[in-house]
């Protein structure tokens, strides 16, 4: 059953905010925008949970809360286990006639640390067990809550405080873990990537993820001005460039069948519109050291990796 709501700008603007203003996220925080957008797309009664991280900390500082829906946090590595318990309780309590609502959706939010790294076991287990929930990964590509340390989601060459731009080693030496593909390998019903710059696409995917029967995974790129050393007013522009450079292509995989989403399809059909990674990197201070002559080869390697992953994706989408 597909949604009748078409996500027009007017409708979105008119929808009540369920992730409220007044939270303590930094200026230009894309994860906060992502949370607000995700809750704009819910279809009915919903319970949310977050892993420990920036958005948990900034949205719930006691005695305040930014959440207008029921919400729980337990620990860092537990977002998917939280959702498993919530979903299971809802199922059995509904069966025993102790819940009035016909259906309650469950959304788990995790940052990259809580998803790529410390929480991947709980996530993999929850998906294998087939719990009906949507997992939203807001990926700001490092442990920002503790002050910018590298994660499995940090891209090649990026400066963080644990992958410093040193004289010998220029930032993170390893590649970003292909987390969304790992989730597709779980043979789960629905996996997608999204960017807050393409908000209609993001909202549609949230709704789709809630509608599928079983687990859904949405990987959202979410720039962090503090950690990316970028202009707070450019977070959405950077998340657009992530797509336009094919660094972060937008796609969805329904029952393992990949298809490119409209913003990335443009790049596939008209490759001349695909921008170089340099345009993306130069807006972010975390890559500044790569523009020194001795490290420029890393930019080349980043471009090669992006190209390689992009072509691999095109193959999965049956676009040659």
């Amino acid at each position: 059953m597909s949604s009748e709501w078409k996500f027009t700008a007017k409708e979105i603007a008119e929808r009540t905010d369920l992730f409220m203003s007044g939270h303590r996220a930094c200026a230009g925080c894309a994860p906060a925008t992502v949370h607000r957008l995700v809750l704009k797309a819910i279809r009915g009664p919903t319970i949310a949970t977050n892993s420990t991280g920036c958005m948990e900390v900034t949205s719930t500082i006691y005695p305040f809360t930014a959440w207008k829906i029921p919400w729980i946090h337990t620990a860092f590595e537990t977002a998917a286990a939280n959702a498993s318990g919530i979903e299971t309780a809802l199922k059995v309590l509904k069966r025993k006639d102790r819940i009035e609502h016909e259906h309650v959706d469950v959304i788990a939010f995790g940052g990259d640390g809580g998803t790529f790294d410390i929480g991947i076991q709980a996530l993999s287990g929850a998906v294998e067990r087939g719990h009906d929930f949507l997992y939203v990964l807001y990926d700001n590509e490092a442990y920002m809550n503790t002050g910018i340390q590298r994660s499995g989601g940090t891209p090649l060459g990026a400066w963080t405080t644990t992958s410093p731009a040193g004289r010998r080693i220029p930032g993170k030496p390893q590649l970003k873990k292909p987390i969304a593909d790992i989730m597709v390998a779980h043979e789960m019903p629905y996996v997608a990537t999204a960017s807050p710059a393409f908000w209609t696409d993001l909202l549609r995917k949230v709704r789709r993820g809630l509608e599928v029967d079983g687990p859904a995974f949405l990987h959202v790129i979410a720039p962090c001005p503090r950690g990316w050393r970028s202009d707070p007013s450019k977070s959405i522009a950077i998340s657009r460039l992530a797509v336009e450079t094919c660094t972060f292509p937008l796609w969805e995989a329904t029952d393992g069948e990949y298809s490119l989403s409209a913003p990335s399809k443009v790049m596939a059909l008209r490759p001349e519109r695909k921008k170089t990674v340099t345009e993306y990197l130069k807006m972010q201070g975390r890559f500044r050291h790569l523009f020194k002559p001795e490290f420029e080869h890393v930019i080349g390697r980043i471009q090669e990796t992006v190209n390689k992953r992009w072509h691999k994706l095109l193959g999965k989408c049956n676009i040659s």
Partner: peptide, 20 residues
């Protein structure tokens, strides 16, 4: 729920209990 670890087992119990 046959979880993948004791850590998740207790977490599931906790959040299920929070739902009621």
């Amino acid at each position: 729920i046959c979880t993948e670890s004791e850590h998740s087992a207790l977490t599931c119990c906790l959040t299920a209990a929070a739902v009621g």
